[in-house]
Design a protein around this nucleic acid. Structure first.
Lengths: 136, 136
DNA sequence: GTGACATATTCGTCAACGTGAATATATTCA
DNA sequence: TGAATATATTCACGTTGACGAATATGTCAC
């Protein structure tokens, strides 16, 4: 018993109906991102980020992976192809938004920026570590 | 001043995050539908239907047209193409749901069914009146 | 005008959500 | 073991949303 709940349309859209969560999804895009970058880039208190990530996880939209002290979150495409397409469409939509572009730009150069959260040693997002980060 | 507010992503998804509203959108599909059919088919109190329709209207997803005593609602595709595609995708998704199919089937034959709301004389949905409703 | 009908709005209540502050848990290092 | 760091959870509070019940508005027929 206590089976994993079936994917819920209503819950899916509710999860997308918050700007903070949209910003998180926008930053994840196709890559895995460490929580500390969310905190740094959104400039929001860490518990707030954590709660929204838990909400997304509970809705089945993201999954988490622990790596030492750090937690990595990534988007997991829904089991339903329609939902997957909607999610991709949404990410494309966010791509066009000015503020969202700024967020992504800040993530791209986060490996160079000092921060109050001290990201030295924090795991880099996949896309950043894959390239050599020319800005450094 | 008091310009029409810009289309809001967050509000858009919030509007989709309720099952009653999803049922309403599913019934509208591409056609215009009279409120009395919503009340009849959803089997919900009329004020509840009206409030959800107002919510959708406020989010810019549907528009209303008065025809005598009756109000017709229809989906109005959002000004942003990405939102339009998401909305279409959502309608396709709903199309696959069993309960949503039942709702649409009941709308299709609503012109034949007697009802406590007495739909005699109520305006028929466009798709129903266009065809000759073979079931009658 | 009055009455009947279709729809919209208001009111009160309750649950869900978003938030900051504080605290708890988990992991690593010494 | 204990300290330091990263993340999660809890608590209290204000806001929003969904709801049933009651009421208001708008339109038509007479």
């Amino acid at each position: 018993m206590a089976r994993k709940a079936q994917f819920d349309i209503q819950q899916f859209f509710q999860a997308l109906g918050d700007n903070t969560r949209l910003r998180l999804l926008n930053l994840m895009g196709e890559q895995e991102v460490c929580v500390c970058y969310f905190v740094e880039i959104l400039g929001a208190p860490q518990p707030k980020i954590s709660r929204h990530l838990a909400y997304l996880r509970n809705a089945g939209i993201v999954s988490a992976r622990r790596e030492g002290k750090w937690m990595h979150y990534r988007i997991v495409m829904p089991p339903h192809i329609g939902a997957t397409q909607i999610l991709r469409q949404t990410l494309d939509w966010l791509n066009e938004d000015k503020a969202m572009q700024t967020d992504r730009a800040r993530l791209a150069k986060a490996c160079c920026a000092p921060s109050k959260y001290d990201l030295d040693g924090a795991p880099l997002p996949a896309a950043v570590s894959a390239q050599s980060c020319g800005a450094c």
